[in-house]
Structure formats: structure tokens, C-alpha cells
Measured scan of single mutants.
Amino acid sequence: MGSVRTNRYSIVSSEEDGMKLATMAVANGFGNGKSKVHTRQQCRSRFVKKDGHCNVQFINVGEKGQRYLADIFTTCVDIRWRWMLVIFCLAFVLSWLFFGCVFWLIALLHGDLDTDYKDDDDKSKVSKACVSEVNSFTAAFLFSIETQTTIGYGFRCVTDECPIAVFMVVFQSIVGCIIDAFIIGAVMAKMAKPKKRNETLVFSHNAVIAMRDGKLCLMWRVGNLRKSHLVEAHVRAQLLKSRITSEGEYIPLDQIDINVGFDSGIDRIFLVSPITIVHEIDEDSPLYDLSKQDIDNADFEIVVILEGMVEATAMTTQCRSSYLANEILWGHRYEPVLFEEKHYYKVDYSRFHKTYEVPNTPLCSARDLAEKKYILSNANSFCYENEVALTSKEEEEDSENGVPESTSTDSPPGIDLHNQASVPLEPRPLRRESEIGSRR
């Protein structure tokens, strides 16, 4: 089982795998120059863009038009607004034209077009017409509009002379109601789609790998820009990579689940303020055997998904993003964004995407760390350097704002901070800030 798991979770494809794949392509008759073999020097295209759209195009789909027309309502909801407006206008105009032609044909076959009612006051002739005051196609078209929109100006009306005319008036009224219901329903469904809710759900630009509770963890940050909550919010993550099976089958995008606390339930989050999602790199993680150097040379993509129900409509929305291997910062942490004021908490989104480097973060893999092949620094050293990194950030910001350097908390000259780390230190809580992250 261990060997199978290692093969499945191998992220960085070796040169031997690339040569094996190329040999397979030639042997199977696919070596026509169009096949692409992804190596370390040639990274694959992003499968999920940063804005959440999937970078996929469908080609050679059989009976595409028929399949889309069979699900016309979903098609109308998914198309762009400009095409929705075109369909909206065409549906009414074509129905008016169709029934206008029908009423014109009825008048033509009944002989109503030969009668001039402007110079004739004989009401008996008017009563013999199928539709009064309809003696041309324009008049028939206007009567069709008046019937379907129930305008009723009063000059044109159907008589009991022709039952077919009466039937067409009733039929057009029913068709008009159906068109109204369909168009209004599609427009309302399109307006109520929770897709735009994703514009106020954000992911951090970069993911980070750092120590948390004595273990290497992959972390990324999510935030909600609205005050309205995302009900039943939960997160998922998958690692996408290519691999070759033991039988020699090439899988271009193998999807591997990344555990973010599904078993323990901590994948469900209360997204009021930005939260750091934590994936513990343990023996079940696809990143277990990867060191910093392996991450730098790897070719994979981590897709992160945030799902929840919109509070206003109770409709489920899904926000997506992805991180390539070069977008994962090893040995970094996110800057705090949640600050405790006197009577409330304040979230500073200008710090949302910012990170700071944490010294002495192990550069080895989580496996080597678990097997004690890498000796961690003293816990006080880690905490102290973590505090120094934050303090230096604040000093830089104070210097930019014009604060005198004498007010900063610099260490005395001639003292090495790293050498001082081995000395037991008193706890130094942050002056006014605390970061709330997901705790395992």
C-alpha cells in the first residue's frame, strides 16, 4: 500500500517518465508532432483561472445545437444578457408577425380586404367582416399587437362572423401568456443567479507553507467582502497533476483530494472575517514527500473551492481559484488583518494578500521532518523571529508614515537576534492585533 500511495502522490514527473511517455506515443502511432509532453521546463496551462473560470474549450460535440435547444431554459439562463435581450425582442416580434399574417390571411380569404370602410357607412358590411377595420397587412399586424398586449384601442375587434378568427384570438392570448411567463422566468432566474456573489468572495493571491502546531501546513486565505453571511460555508481543495499509471496509461489531469478537515468538520467555516484555511501535510497528503526545492521545480495546480448558500436567496454559490506551484510561498505567513478595537473588531483588507517571511522554516519535506531528519529550532526562537518579522513590518510602515526611528523597538546594537533566540524570552503579545485562523 505504501508503494502504491507514493506512486499515486508523486508530484514532480521525472525525466524517465517523460521519455517513457514519448516512447509510448511513438510506439502507439501518436508521434505526429502534435502531442505535447509536459516536462519541468514546460509548465501546463492553468486549468482553473484565478477568477474561477475553467480554462476549457469543448470541440467536436455531436448534436450540440439539439442538446442546447432541448434544455432551452438553461440555455437562456446561461447566455449573455445581450443575447437574452435579442431573444426577448424576437420572441414578441415574431409572435406578433405570425398572428398578424394569420389574421391577414383570414381577412384575405373572407374577402374583407376588398371592402373600403372609410367611404361605406353600411354597418351590415362591417358585421360581415371577420375582424372589423382590418383591410391590410398593417392593420392585421396592429390588431395582433393589440390582442397579445391587451391594449385594446377599440377600432379593431373580432366579430362572430368567422369562428376561426375567434379561435385565433383565444389562441394568441394563451401563447402570449406562455411567452411572458417564459421570458420573465428566465430573466428573473438569470438575475437571481448567485454567480455575481463570487465577486465579493476573495482568495489570497498566494498560498503559503509554514509551520503550525509543530507541523508543516499548506495555507491559503479566504474572505467575504459583504456583511451578509454565506450560510453553510465549506471549503474543498484538489491537486491536479499528470501521472502515468503502473500499466503505462497517461492521465493528463489526475485529481487528488486535499484534506482540509472534512473528517473532523473544520472544513465548515464561519466566514465573517478572513480565515486562513489549513491543510496539514501528513502522510496522507500529496505534498508529504515534497521539499522546498521540489515545490520550486514541480508542475501541478491546486484548485480551491468555497461553497455556501447566499443568505438573501438561499441559492448555492461556488467560488473557485487555483494556485500553481510557483504561487506557493515556502516559509511565509499571512499578515494579520483582524484588529481588536474598543467595542468592535476591524478588518483591514489592505493586508489581505500580504505575507511575511518566517525565518528558520524547515526546507525539507514533511516526511523528513516526521522522521527527525531535520532538527527544528527552539520553539522560543521560532516565536521570537516570528515577532521580529512582524515588528520589522510595523517599523517599515512607521518610517513610511514619517514616525521617528527613535520610537521604534530596535534591538541594541551589536546583538545578533538569531543568537539571542536560544535565550528564554518573556511572551510578547501583539500590541493591538490578533489573527483569527482556522485551528486544527
Results as ranks from 00 to 15, higher is better:
residue 142 L to Q: 05
residue 301 E to S: 01
residue 141 F to P: 00
residue 85 L to G: 03
residue 45 S to H: 14
residue 32 N to A: 09
residue 250 Y to I: 15
residue 53 H to M: 08
residue 240 L to W: 09
residue 133 E to K: 04
residue 116 D to M: 14
residue 282 D to L: 10
residue 168 M to S: 14
residue 125 K to D: 12
residue 113 L to D: 00
residue 231 V to G: 04
residue 328 I to S: 00
residue 286 P to R: 00
residue 51 D to E: 14
residue 43 C to T: 14
residue 295 I to R: 01
residue 51 D to S: 06
residue 147 T to V: 04
residue 426 E to Y: 05
residue 287 L to W: 00
residue 371 E to V: 08
residue 70 A to E: 04
residue 24 M to P: 13
residue 55 N to Q: 13
residue 54 C to L: 07
residue 16 E to S: 05
residue 204 S to Q: 00
residue 391 T to P: 12
residue 5 R to G: 14
residue 407 T to L: 07
residue 27 A to D: 08
residue 111 G to V: 02
residue 310 V to F: 05
residue 198 N to K: 13
residue 314 A to S: 12
residue 66 Q to L: 14
residue 6 T to S: 14
residue 343 H to L: 09
residue 244 I to K: 15
residue 29 G to S: 04
residue 246 S to P: 14
residue 281 I to F: 01
residue 75 T to N: 06
residue 232 E to Y: 12
residue 79 I to S: 08
residue 244 I to S: 15
residue 247 E to N: 09
residue 190 K to T: 09
residue 148 Q to W: 02
residue 40 R to N: 13
residue 256 I to M: 10
residue 240 L to S: 03
residue 257 D to E: 12
residue 35 S to G: 08
residue 40 R to C: 04
residue 6 T to C: 06
residue 25 A to P: 15
residue 29 G to I: 06
residue 387 E to F: 01
residue 219 M to A: 04
residue 263 D to S: 10
residue 215 K to C: 13
residue 151 I to A: 09
residue 104 W to L: 12
residue 357 E to R: 04
residue 113 L to N: 00
residue 218 L to C: 13
residue 169 V to C: 00
residue 190 K to L: 09
residue 210 A to G: 10
residue 157 C to A: 14
residue 363 L to V: 11
residue 226 R to V: 14
residue 16 E to D: 07
residue 306 L to Y: 08
residue 319 C to K: 11
residue 51 D to W: 02
residue 42 Q to N: 10
residue 14 S to L: 11
residue 7 N to V: 05
residue 125 K to N: 05
residue 244 I to D: 14
residue 292 K to V: 03
residue 139 A to K: 03
residue 369 L to V: 15
residue 181 A to C: 15
residue 274 P to I: 02
residue 374 Y to L: 10
residue 258 I to D: 01
residue 277 I to H: 01
residue 240 L to E: 00
residue 172 Q to W: 00
residue 267 D to I: 03
residue 119 D to H: 10
residue 72 I to M: 11
residue 241 K to E: 06
residue 151 I to T: 13
residue 331 G to K: 02
residue 67 R to V: 02
residue 316 T to C: 13
residue 331 G to E: 00
residue 98 F to N: 02
residue 144 S to G: 03
residue 352 F to K: 01
residue 187 V to N: 06
residue 256 I to E: 11
residue 396 E to Y: 09
residue 403 V to G: 13
residue 166 V to D: 02
residue 26 V to I: 08
residue 6 T to H: 08
residue 314 A to N: 09
residue 357 E to Y: 04
residue 65 G to V: 15
residue 324 L to D: 02
residue 433 E to V: 11
residue 187 V to P: 05
residue 407 T to M: 08
residue 201 L to S: 07
residue 236 R to L: 01
residue 374 Y to M: 11
residue 217 C to P: 00
residue 180 D to M: 15
residue 71 D to W: 12
residue 89 C to K: 05
residue 17 D to A: 07
residue 177 C to I: 15
residue 363 L to S: 11
residue 369 L to P: 01
residue 322 S to A: 03
residue 103 F to W: 15
residue 383 C to F: 07
residue 159 T to L: 01
residue 385 E to G: 03
residue 52 G to M: 02
residue 315 M to H: 05
residue 5 R to V: 07
residue 188 M to D: 09
residue 192 A to W: 09
residue 6 T to E: 15
residue 315 M to T: 11
residue 129 A to G: 09
residue 98 F to K: 00
residue 434 S to W: 09
residue 248 G to N: 14
residue 24 M to S: 12
residue 255 Q to I: 09
residue 96 W to D: 00
residue 11 I to Y: 12
residue 274 P to W: 11
residue 25 A to W: 08
residue 267 D to H: 06
residue 241 K to C: 08
residue 183 I to N: 05
residue 61 V to R: 14
residue 368 D to G: 08
residue 316 T to F: 08
residue 288 Y to H: 02
residue 4 V to T: 14
residue 256 I to F: 10
residue 381 S to Y: 04
residue 130 C to L: 03
residue 280 E to R: 13
residue 298 A to Q: 11
residue 373 K to H: 12
residue 155 F to A: 14
residue 404 P to H: 07
residue 169 V to Y: 08
residue 234 H to T: 11
residue 308 G to H: 04
residue 175 V to Y: 15
residue 302 I to A: 01
residue 217 C to D: 03
residue 19 M to R: 07
residue 116 D to K: 09
residue 370 A to Y: 05
residue 81 W to F: 12
residue 418 H to G: 13
residue 9 Y to M: 14
residue 50 K to H: 06
residue 241 K to I: 07
residue 102 V to E: 00
residue 385 E to P: 00
residue 377 S to F: 06
residue 386 N to L: 02
residue 134 V to E: 00
residue 78 D to V: 09
residue 222 V to D: 01
residue 316 T to Y: 11
residue 299 D to L: 07
residue 254 D to W: 07
residue 413 P to R: 05
residue 211 M to A: 13
residue 337 V to W: 02
residue 8 R to K: 05
residue 332 H to M: 06
residue 386 N to S: 15
residue 173 S to C: 15
residue 116 D to A: 15
residue 22 A to P: 08
residue 51 D to Q: 08
residue 301 E to F: 01
residue 207 A to G: 14
residue 270 F to G: 04
residue 430 L to V: 09
residue 374 Y to I: 10
residue 129 A to S: 10
residue 81 W to A: 08
residue 72 I to N: 14
residue 390 L to R: 15
residue 103 F to I: 14
residue 151 I to R: 06
residue 268 R to W: 10
residue 111 G to H: 05
residue 95 S to G: 09
residue 175 V to W: 08
residue 127 S to C: 03
residue 218 L to Y: 01
residue 314 A to L: 09
residue 43 C to Q: 09
residue 184 I to G: 09
residue 275 I to D: 05
residue 54 C to Y: 04
residue 311 E to L: 05
residue 270 F to V: 12
residue 90 L to N: 15
residue 401 N to T: 12
residue 83 W to H: 08
residue 52 G to L: 00
residue 369 L to D: 01
residue 42 Q to S: 08
residue 314 A to T: 07
residue 430 L to S: 13
residue 175 V to M: 11
residue 15 E to T: 07
residue 401 N to L: 09
residue 84 M to G: 05
residue 395 E to Y: 06
residue 10 S to Q: 06
residue 93 V to R: 00
residue 109 L to A: 15
residue 171 F to V: 09
residue 41 Q to H: 07
residue 176 G to L: 03
residue 349 Y to S: 12
residue 239 L to I: 14
residue 372 K to F: 06
residue 40 R to M: 08
residue 197 R to T: 12
residue 158 V to C: 01
residue 341 E to S: 07
residue 133 E to G: 10
